[in-house]
């Protein structure tokens, strides 16, 4: 699943300026045959960017993995996103 994470690191939250993996928005990734399922959250339930972010996620995964032909993305707010979910890289970029 590391290669899928690497693909998703290309999807940047335009306001925060950090990718969605380091922000801790990706909860789970699984693969069955040619299908990838991603369970993720957003920092904001009222954010209209959800469709754009999901579309970019699909685009990068499919582009980088010719063996995959379907990407399913499920958005959940349970558990809610917390600052502690960010990677040390993101924490460092945001000034500790």
């Amino acid at each position: 699943m590391d290669s899928i994470r690497t693909s998703l690191q290309q999807v940047i939250d335009p306001e925060i300026g950090i990718n969605i993996v380091d922000l801790g928005l990706i909860y789970d990734i699984s693969q069955t045959n040619n299908q990838v399922c991603v369970l993720m959250t957003l920092t904001s339930a009222g954010c209209p960017l959800q469709d754009m972010i999901i579309s970019q996620m699909r685009q990068h995964i499919l582009q980088d993995h010719p063996d995959i032909d379907d990407v399913k993305v499920e958005v959940t707010f349970d558990p809610p996103w917390q600052r502690a979910m960010m990677s040390p890289v993101a924490v460092n970029l945001l000034g500790g």
Binding site: E15, I16, I18, L23, T43, S44, G46, C47, W81, R83, M86, A90, L94, G95, G96
Partner: peptide
């Protein structure tokens, strides 16, 4: 409200 939401990435 929108700006507070984004500021949650910072140390409270």
């Amino acid at each position: 409200g929108e700006r507070i939401e984004l500021s949650r990435v910072l140390v409270p």
